[in-house]
Design a protein around this nucleic acid. Structure first.
Lengths: 341, 341
DNA sequence: TGACTCTTGAGTGACGTACCTCAAATTTTT
DNA sequence: AAAAATTTGAGGTACGTCACTCAAGAGTCA
């Protein structure tokens, strides 16, 4: 049988109350006594029973995900995953809510975040671009004792507690090195596409991509990023212009969402061009692209892992307990048709 | 506040005892009453509080990992990971024990498994080659109501409940396609190495590798697998022979553990040969190989994930609850220097 | 010495569920 | 309609921890 607090008390020759004080870092215990208790804990190999602890604490965690609206496959998958994970989280007394804010409206976002201060949640997970308003709102949240975690898109210059996601520069570098290897010393141009460069990871991925590709492979020219900002026509125009200007385009790299649209735009040019196509984020569409061979590699992160990790981290922050770095590290996944699973 | 069993009882107009009978599928409740209770559960959105349930059940799980001895980096990492995960598992009342058996001794293994029948464990996780003795022992375990899960190395023709690990054929295929792409249409021979082909995954990886490489790239000849069976001299002899016979070796594929040894053996030949080196299992050594560029790709699985998943699956099997397929699927990780993390 | 603080003991009632007993109510069978 | 079987109610104890109270003991200072 596992030792309980009672066993510890007995072994240490103190009362239950003292053990409790030590365990929960309550004041009013002498140093020597603390050590005696800790020694007993060590010797008996006591570990706190989480079930009982949670029950007694009758703590229910309220966490809010704040996401920007959008109907890209990625965002849709994210929302679905949150919903699904939330269901299981309920068993562990975590109530998860999702709030959507319109994209490109930092004021609205800041208002929403401020609204969370008064007792709506003890933890907030944010995926949104970093702006002064957001920085401000996050500081307020933290001042009110609310845990703040960013997911997918880092908010490094804020008071956030943690970022759950991948290193975008490394992700871009991974894309770059794969592009380099898949291009097999051919000379030519590489097209880089991004719906918007407002999100920092778009910029960082491009950075890493260029670094990995150009530094070791100067025969390749990486063209300036094509942005289309939710405007399909602009995308089409720019792509047409690119293929008109250069007949040696041999690779395309899409740094973020938008593969569904871009694939359609790209289709007419694929017959005459043998392209290496590298994309980000595994979704139904990129999955299909891998399967039919139109996409060569997808660099991605496991969304389920991201969401579960976010909740674990939020809980750890609220409880002020350690987080298991190994478990919470999100890997940069390289997905080919063969290991798609 | 979350609804409790009491709320359900009240809402359904029955007593606590009846709700309890319904929830735990105990006999002695009329169908109509069951439905009434279920309706209340549905309406109030009741979810069983796992903490309280586990506490009340005062269930402690005893799980045993049965592994073959060995000092390869992979096995070492696996053991360390189990130990670490076990520490956290203790908080959730799971006592994890590891038993090592000498490799290549199916009788010993079978004896150990039989020894687990009488009350030593309610769940067993096995990583070992499949033999008739093992099949037999697993059947006995199952007959005694013990959950059996294999990890890393599948035991498909046994009565096991589940396999936690990757599809070896797909892993081999992934290695094959990466080899093909990294070789860039060069002609030549590829060396395949495997300590032993007794474990089924060695065979399967080779199978997948050949399929992906040869079918779409016939200019390459994949040489017969070199086995060394824990004998460094044999490895060295065979490698020497291979490089003596062929001067157009352009790739090497190590299908399992043994990269540390093999790297040493290979070193003298690397100066004159430009090789693509693909390995399996991310360990300290293969990590270092990626970092210094001597290894190009490592195909691996997240051991931490495997071990945690194994415990979750065992618990689910013991509790006869559903397992979350998405969470328990182990991905085939493709690791380059750039996304090593 | 007394007044004071700091430390410890002893005990209690949650938390939500599991599992048990015994008796009463209800339905089914004879 | 009586007997038997089934279904339901009422209540209790337990699980291990948390969080609290109240009182008593030890130690410190003037």
């Amino acid at each position: 049988m596992r030792p309980t607090v009672n066993d510890i008390a007995h072994a240490a020759g103190v009362s239950l109350a003292t053990v409790d004080r030590v365990l929960n870092a309550r004041p009013g215990v002498r140093k020597v006594t603390i050590e005696r208790v800790n020694k007993a804990i060590e010797e008996l190999g006591y570990v706190r029973d989480l079930s009982a602890a949670n029950l007694a604490r009758r703590r229910t965690y309220r966490f809010v995900f704040v996401l920007t609206e959008g109907d890209s496959q990625f965002q849709r998958t994210l929302r679905e995953t949150i919903e699904e994970v939330a269901k299981n989280a309920a068993r562990e007394r975590m109530m998860v809510e999702t709030v959507l804010v319109p994209p490109g409206d930092p004021h609205h976002l800041a208002r929403v975040l401020h609204g969370l201060e008064d007792d709506r949640a003890e933890g907030v997970a944010i995926m949104a671009p970093e702006t002064p308003h957001v920085r401000d709102a996050i500081r307020h949240l933290k001042e009110n004792g609310i845990a703040v975690v960013s997911l997918v898109s880092d908010l490094p210059n804020t008071d956030q507690d943690h970022f759950v996601g991948i290193d975008s520069i490394a992700a871009g570098r991974t894309a770059g090195v794969l592009m380099r290897r898949f291009l097999c010393k051919n000379k030519g141009k590489v097209l880089v596409l991004s719906n918007t460069m407002i999100l920092r990871e778009s910029v960082e991925r491009r950075l890493g991509f260029d670094a990995a590709l150009i530094e070791s492979y100067p025969e390749i020219e990486v063209l300036p990023s094509i942005e289309w900002r939710d405007d399909p026509d602009r995308l089409e125009r720019n792509v047409r212009a690119a293929f008109a200007s250069y007949d040696d385009i041999i690779g395309v790299y899409v740094t973020g969402p938008g593969n569904r649209l871009f694939s359609r735009v790209l289709a007419p040019y694929r017959q005459e061009h043998d392209l290496v196509y590298i994309a980000h984020e595994l979704t139904d569409h990129t999955r299909a692209g891998l399967a039919d061979g139109s996409i060569d590699v997808v660099i991605t992160q496991d969304i389920g892992h991201v969401v579960r990790s976010t909740l674990r981290v939020l809980r750890a922050k609220v409880d002020k307990t350690e987080i298991d770095a190994a478990q919470e590290r999100i890997r940069i996944d390289v997905v080919l048709k063969e290991n798609m699973g």
